[in-house]
Amino acid sequence: MAQIIVVTSGKGGVGKTTSSAAIATGLALKGHKTVVVDFDIGLRNLDLIMGCERRVVYDFVNVINGEANLNQALIKDKRTPNLFVLPASQTRDKDALTKEGVGRVLENLGKDFEYIICDSPAGIETGAMMALYFADTAIVTTNPEVSSVRDSDRILGMLQSKSKRAEEGLAPVNEYLLLTRYSPARVATGEMLSVADVEEILAIPLLGVIPESQAVLKASNSGIPVIIDQESDAGKAYSDAVARLTGEEVEMRFVNEEKKGFLKRIFGS
């Protein structure tokens, strides 16, 4: 049975798509056959970050509507074996996603894949609800600021009441916190919430802390998931998170302010 993982947040722009691409790539790099599905109908950008936007012919909605089969719509990643992308439609609206349609596609994907990563749109409308409905695991992507934390709390409430698992009284969805765009320096000055603050409020296990990093922008501009860039702190942090997701115990990095050396302090970094 495939594991369905939704990357969700409530609030927009916190790093869901960046994280979906990185985590799907990380799982594939570990040898797990993985597909990442874009639920952000009308605002697709997963294919951009995955670097396959020029290869999109058919999309998720085409498959739901029976206009194409899965094999026609799935895009095989050029760089990473075991990795596939199911892109979203740029032209339809979010109501194209129906519970039966999404359920059918996920069921078919489940026959072939170990992991199905669902990149959720922001908000709590149909698209976001469809992305989380079938989830076994939720990665609640949160920035260290009050409004993002509050929206994450809201999404956790939805997972507990509106998911298929909740409706059918099955074991609850596994919930993980992924803290993104974390800047220890800004935590120290009190501009941002600390890891401990966010953990205290949301009270779910911490999957990882991804530092604010230039490497992320660079990676998305070149269409290469940041986890491929193992020189970067964000790339390393995503690798750690993927390891934890597959049950490994890895110590948290990038949570404390880096002590700058004497030269770095003078010349900057």
Binding site: R154, G157, M158, Q160
Partner: peptide
């Protein structure tokens, strides 16, 4: 969680956990 509402009709309510903003 935020957005959730719990009502104990005709009795007491005991929450073993936090009640979030909202």
């Amino acid at each position: 969680r935020s957005g959730q509402q719990i009502y104990a009709q005709n009795g007491d309510l005991i929450i073993v956990g936090a009640v979030g903003n909202g």
